[in-house]
Structures are given as structure tokens and as C-alpha cells.
């Protein structure tokens, strides 16, 4: 394993009107910019492939909403997997050419029940090392026919152990805890968040999860218009506060929330090791407490929210409070 990895974050601007060829040319330029700055791993935001699909098949009218999964399936049945494979092959070629790892954002992939929001990890040899589907879905995603993945993978690479946190996953601390307990040291987060951008919403997602797990994070945000939604976000490369200038927890960040950007940062594993040795948050886990409540404490929650709160209220009202 190398001790200093240089990684790049691509903040991609999705445009409503652009030819598929121009789009791919733009992606090529972005990758070249990153590799010119020494990047060994390049991360694109969520829905990068979806942006390509909307440009390649404007007739499919791919909009976020109830018909999205059906639209994706329609393209899949008309063209087979060729669009998806072409897109992946394009990135595989770039990875081979530049000898770098690439995460080409996420793809919406049809499954039996809907579509999964799935990230790919491509090796410098141009092969797919693995995939990871989003495991937590928000109401809009569920409404658009997304289905969640039910496992989390960690991929061992010479750059470090990589794990994925995709879109909504960033706001569920369980995801990064499981990944880091499985050995992840760099968390890759392809995300796409509708505007307006909120710094504090970002802090309550990736920033704080990086802090409470003492790992590195690369959050790549989509900006611009896609599927009838306008996205904003400030892509960021994170480390623990102790390792960053001004104690901010930020190694590098996009200049603004609404424009395209490319930037890199070095991930110093020696410093990370020192930080953890000074105080390893995991050393103070209260395992007996977790064992007492996990996982069964979650089981009663998936009741529809209204019923859940109703029941809590009933419980509440049934007893004389202290």
C-alpha cells in the first residue's frame, strides 16, 4: 500500500443541451486535467451516466418521477445494455490510457423491481473491479422507482481500501460505520443533491461521517440540470479536523456550488495513522450496549411513519409520565 495517494474530485455540470459526443469530449478533458495534476483515483458524481443517457436519448424523456424506472427499462429493452456498456468502455479506455482508477459516478441500472443507483470502480488496467448500489433511498428516489442494494463492499487497492457511500447513504451513519468496520480507509461519495445548496446539509452528511470514523472522503457533486431537476453542491475531499488546515476537516473543495470544477488532494496515510493512534474513536465502542439493541431496535421502525408516531403517542398517552 502506498502512503500518499493523490485523488481527484470532478464536479460535473450537467447541461440540458449538448451532443453526446461533446459530453464525452468534456469528460475526457476533465480526466486529463485530473491526471495532469497527478491523480491516481478520479471520482465523478452520481448520475453521470444518466446525464449521458438523457443526451443520447432525448426522446425517452427521462425525468425524475414515477416514470423514470420505466423510461430506463424502455431504453434498455430497445438498445440492450449497449449504451451502458459503451459508457463504461469509454471510461475503461480513459483509465487504461492514464493508468488511473476511475469512478464514473453512478448508473441507473434496471433490475426486476425497478432501477438501482450503482457506482462502478474501474482499475488502471481498464477492468471493472466492482460495483456498489445505493443502500438507502429517499422518498423521491423511491417514487422514481429506485430499489436499494442490500450489501456494502470494500475494495482493496494499492491506494487503500475503498468503500462507497452513494447519494442518500451519506445521511445514514450506519453506512460509513459498516464500511469502516469492514476496513475502508477512503470513502467515495458520488452524490447529486437538488438545489439550493446548503453547507450545513453537507456537514450533516459526509463531513461528520468522516470525522466519526477517522477516514478520508471524496464527495463528488453533480451540478446543473438533469431529469427536470436542478442540482447544486460543493465537491469536497475530506480528512479528520486534526489533519486539515484551519482544522476544518476539508483538504480541498470546489470553488462554488453551481459550476464545473476539478481539483485534487493528497491523502497522507502516515498522518491518518498518527491521528488514529493518538485517539482511536473505535477504541471506546460500548459493545454490550450495541449488542443489547442492534439490530432489533430498527425492526419496529419501518412501520409507515404515521403509524409509528401514532403508536408512540399511544404508548405515551397510556402511561402516566414522570
Amino acid at each position: 500500500m502506498i502512503l500518499l495517494a493523490r485523488v481527484a474530485c470532478i464536479q460535473l455540470l450537467s447541461r440540458r443541451r449538448e451532443s453526446p459526443g461533446d459530453f464525452l469530449l468534456r469528460l475526457t478533458c476533465l480526466v486529463e486535467h485530473a491526471t495532469h495534476d497527478g491523480a491516481q483515483l478520479i471520482v465523478f458524481p452520481a448520475y453521470t451516466a444518466f446525464a449521458y443517457l438523457t443526451l443520447a436519448h432525448p426522446e425517452a424523456q427521462l425525468y425524475f418521477g414515477p416514470g423514470l424506472a420505466q423510461g430506463i427499462r424502455r431504453i434498455w429493452s430497445s438498445y440492450g445494455a449497449s449504451n451502458f456498456n459503451d459508457f463504461l468502455d469509454f471510461f475503461k479506455g480513459l483509465a487504461r490510457k492514464h493508468g488511473t482508477y476511475i469512478v464514473p459516478g453512478t448508473m441507473l441500472t434496471p433490475t426486476g423491481k425497478g432501477v438501482t443507483n450503482t457506482a462502478y470502480l474501474i482499475s488502471p488496467a481498464g477492468t471493472t473491479i466492482g460495483t456498489q448500489s445505493e443502500t438507502h433511498l429517499n422518498r423521491d428516489e423511491r417514487g422514481s422507482g429506485f430499489v436499494s442494494g442490500d450489501d456494502l463492499q470494500v475494495f482493496a487497492t494499492p491506494l487503500g481500501n475503498l468503500g462507497f457511500v452513494i447519494c442518500e447513504d451519506a445521511w445514514y451513519p450506519e453506512v460509513m460505520r459498516i464500511l469502516t468496520l469492514k476496513g475502508a480507509q477512503i470513502i467515495i461519495a458520488p452524490v447529486a443533491v437538488p438545489k439550493p445548496y446548503s453547507k450545513w446539509h453537507q456537514v450533516r452528511g459526509m463531513w461528520q461521517n468522516i470525522q466519526q470514523n477517522q477516514v478520508f472522503g471524496i464527495e463528488s457533486c453533480l451540478t446543473g440540470f438533469l431529469g427536470g431537476v436542478e442540482f447544486e453542491g460543493r465537491s469536497t475531499i475530506y480528512a479528520t479536523c486534526e489533519m486539515t488546515p484551519g482544522d476544518t476537516g476539508v483538504l480541498a473543495q470546489a470553488k462554488a456550488a453551481h459550476m464545473e470544477d476539478v481539483f485534487t488532494a493528497g491523502l497522507d496515510f502516515i498522518k491518518l495513522g498518527e491521528t488514529i493512534r493518538r485517539f482511536d474513536i473505535f477504541s471506546q465502542f460500548n459493545r454490550p450496549l450495541y449488542k443489547q439493541w442492534f439490530p432489533h431496535v430498527y425492526r419496529e421502525y419501518p412501520l409507515p411513519a404515521s403509524r409509528y408516531h401514532e403508536r408512540k403517542r399511544e404508548e405515551h398517552e397510556g402511561r402516566k409520565p414522570l
Partner: peptide, 24 residues
């Protein structure tokens, strides 16, 4: 409403807290 993935948690929690510490 929060939308938990209980199937995922059942795979890993709480056992991973012990195994994961060794790994780290």
C-alpha cells in the same frame, strides 16, 4: 421519514463491532 435498510444492518450489526476493531 427515515428509511432504514434493516436487511443490511442485520448482516453486520452488532458482530462487526468486534471484528472491525481487529481489522482497524
Amino acid at each position: 421519514p427515515l428509511n432504514f435498510n434493516v436487511t443490511l444492518y442485520e448482516k453486520y450489526l452488532p458482530g462487526l463491532y468486534t471484528e472491525g476493531q481487529k481489522e482497524r
